[in-house]
Design a protein around this nucleic acid. Structure first.
Lengths: 125, 125
DNA sequence: TGACATCTTCTACATCTGTAGTAGAATGCT
DNA sequence: AGCATTCTACTACAGATGTAGAAGATGTCA
């Protein structure tokens, strides 16, 4: 499932708080995003159609909530990026991040710790 | 500069070998990609238009070569993904990769080494 | 020099995306 | 009950994208 830029905005709002009404989403979108209410409704309708969001009518108002989880969306997005731009593998992608982005000392430590933590978890299985 | 999916295919070919003719690119695209010759030309024209590729006429045939580097394209793509899906920062993105993707032992070692190498390089500056 | 092969440039067109207006239904307030 | 507010459903429309055909220009080989 591929999300468009505009759809990510909506999903990010939804993941942050749901169920949510279109109105509520409108209020919680980043301030730079100034969409007409109906724009949001259109995007939500498209998301429902593609199965990323579920819609529940309460009275005359729809409540929306994510079906696609943030984690899966992220996984998909990374996978697609890896395929498209990093020879299909995460390794090169991570190397690129490590080598290209200037990591601060603490970010590095952070990562080292994260990797080691995973490592322990793995071993204790 | 944002590349579309189809444009990435072309750029990946071009980065792998350039200057290249449209015909040459056609031959080196992954076998699953079966585009008409003119499709490739259209995409190249669009890439030239957006300044990602340079075109040089040799006789009646065009030679193409990248202007946008692979490194920059990757950087941009990652930045956009981070903005869209990872709260705008690389940290969460890397954490996600480390925690979500099952890394093999050797991949982990590999990363640890890469991080440490960066670290030394940093310190020796 | 003529017939083919190959290039290039234009044009085309369906689908997807971003963005929103209109109109009718439901709800709420007085 | 009547008017204002707010929803939803439907329609619209321009620009981006994927994909390619048509036709004319150029090169090539016998």
């Amino acid at each position: 499932m591929k999300l468009t830029d505009a759809e990510w905005q909506i999903m990010n709002c939804l993941w942050a708080r749901y169920p949510a009404t279109a109105r509520g989403i409108a209020e919680r979108l980043p301030k730079e995003v100034e969409w007409a209410y109906t724009t949001i409704k259109t995007l939500l309708a498209r998301l429902v159609e593609k199965g990323a969001v579920k819609e529940n009518k309460k009275g005359n108002t729809s409540l929306y909530e994510p079906v696609l989880s943030k984690q899966n969306a992220r996984r998909n997005a990374l996978k697609m990026l890896a395929n498209q731009a990093f020879d299909g593998a995460f390794g090169p992608l991570m190397h690129f991040l490590i080598e290209d982005e200037k990591l601060t000392e603490s970010q590095k430590n952070d990562l080292l710790k994260a990797i080691q933590k995973q490592d322990r978890k793995e071993k204790s299985k």
